[in-house]
Amino acid sequence: MSIDFKDISVIVQGPVQAYQGRDQQAGITHQCLQSIRTHLPGATIILSTWEGQDCSGLEPDILLLNKDPGGTIAAYDQHGKPGKLNFNRQLLSTAAGLRQARTPYAIKLRSDNYLTGNEFVTAQQAYPVRNQADSLFTERVVVNTSYFRKYADGHRVVMLPSDFFHFGRTEDLLKIWGIPLFDDLVFNPSQSGRPQYRGYPYIIPHAEQIYCNAWLQQLDKQVPYLEHRHQQNAAMVEYWDRFMASNFVVMEPEQIGLGLIPRFIAKQKRPNEMSYLDWQCLYQRYCDTNFVAPKLKLFTQLGWKRLVKLPFSRLKFSIKHSKRHK
């Protein structure tokens, strides 16, 4: 089955100019919208941004000016100073756009990224075999590898997908982005004088893990609450691998047709990130045993680097973390 571009809504979410501590490359959202018109002619563009943003010259099909929910307090330092993250900003702007979509398919795209092609449309349908017991989405969701971590600080981690780009059924993207907003972490006076955050004294989960853990728990009540970044065991790793195999297509940005601003572009593939080759191996293992996975290519491109670099990353993290908590 081929997907017609007119059956796709593109949710461009986020600020269109510098906004409350977040720099924005001048003209990048104009470039983003123009790239959609070029590579997805006929698609519906929904720009979901904030009240007070200057949208002059931007011509989306639908413009949403959302009320800013503000940063979400996710931690306090030892002096009681709150640390805020943009959890609810991303959730609210993305979900608001998805709820306006009237097409069966949708894309979640940052306002500071853009399209360089439309290869993701074909890729979404290119891996038809799924394990039904592991399939929590109606169809696969195409996800970008940039900042999709397989390892963090040298440790294998779970539930850490990239949140830059998603393409799939609108109903499936709403399973990810339609979750309730997060509450601020409440300061605990009895713990005054030490940092307060999810997982203390272990390392706090990455923001993407906190998102993913929340929506995955809504889809499957057996998924445990992720206490800290490195929490995992053999069963959790297998569960996450099986989920990725049947619910995602994990691809490099150049394979997707996704353009990134310079600060997101690595000089070479990061060994700690998931790769398309990693994902293909999972697809063979858990979905289609007749598929020929590129195992040798994976080792020559990334596997040997991981063998060398990951032990040093673990050691570096261990030393840094022990000093922090002396």
Rank of each mutant, 00 (worst) to 15 (best):
C55H: 11
Q31G: 03
P69C: 01
S246W: 12
S135W: 06
Q301C: 09
R169S: 06
C281A: 05
L47F: 05
I319G: 12
F137N: 03
R140Y: 07
N88E: 06
S135H: 10
Q255E: 14
Q222M: 12
V186I: 14
F291K: 05
K316Q: 14
I28R: 13
L174N: 08
T122W: 07
D68W: 10
Q218F: 00
V186P: 00
P311M: 00
V10I: 15
T72M: 08
F120W: 10
D241Q: 15
W240R: 09
H325Y: 11
P294C: 02
V249T: 13
N113C: 14
L98I: 14
V12R: 15
Q17Y: 03
T300N: 06
P205I: 14
L58W: 02
Q222E: 15
E139D: 15
K81A: 09
R130L: 05
M244H: 03
L109E: 11
F87I: 02
K305Q: 10
T72G: 00
A207K: 12
G303M: 03
L92D: 07
P262N: 07
L98P: 14
P195C: 02
V129C: 13
L302M: 13
C32P: 06
V249A: 14
L315D: 05
K267C: 04
D288H: 01
R324T: 11
L160I: 07
M236I: 09
M274D: 01
P201T: 08
D23Y: 06
R89S: 01
I210S: 13
Q90P: 01
I319N: 09
K81W: 08
M1V: 07
Q90Y: 09
Q125D: 03
S322F: 08
D61Y: 04
N131P: 02
P82C: 04
I11E: 11
E59C: 09
W50N: 08
M274R: 09
P189N: 14
F187G: 05
R99F: 10
I36H: 07
A74G: 06
P41I: 08
L92E: 04
Q124V: 12
Q17I: 00
A214V: 01
L136Y: 15
P82W: 01
F248Y: 15
Y151H: 12
P69T: 01
D7F: 09
D68L: 08
P15K: 15
Q196W: 00
E119M: 04
K175C: 03
W215G: 04
A207N: 13
L296F: 08
Q13W: 10
S192P: 02
R229H: 09
Q209D: 04
W304P: 00
S146C: 13
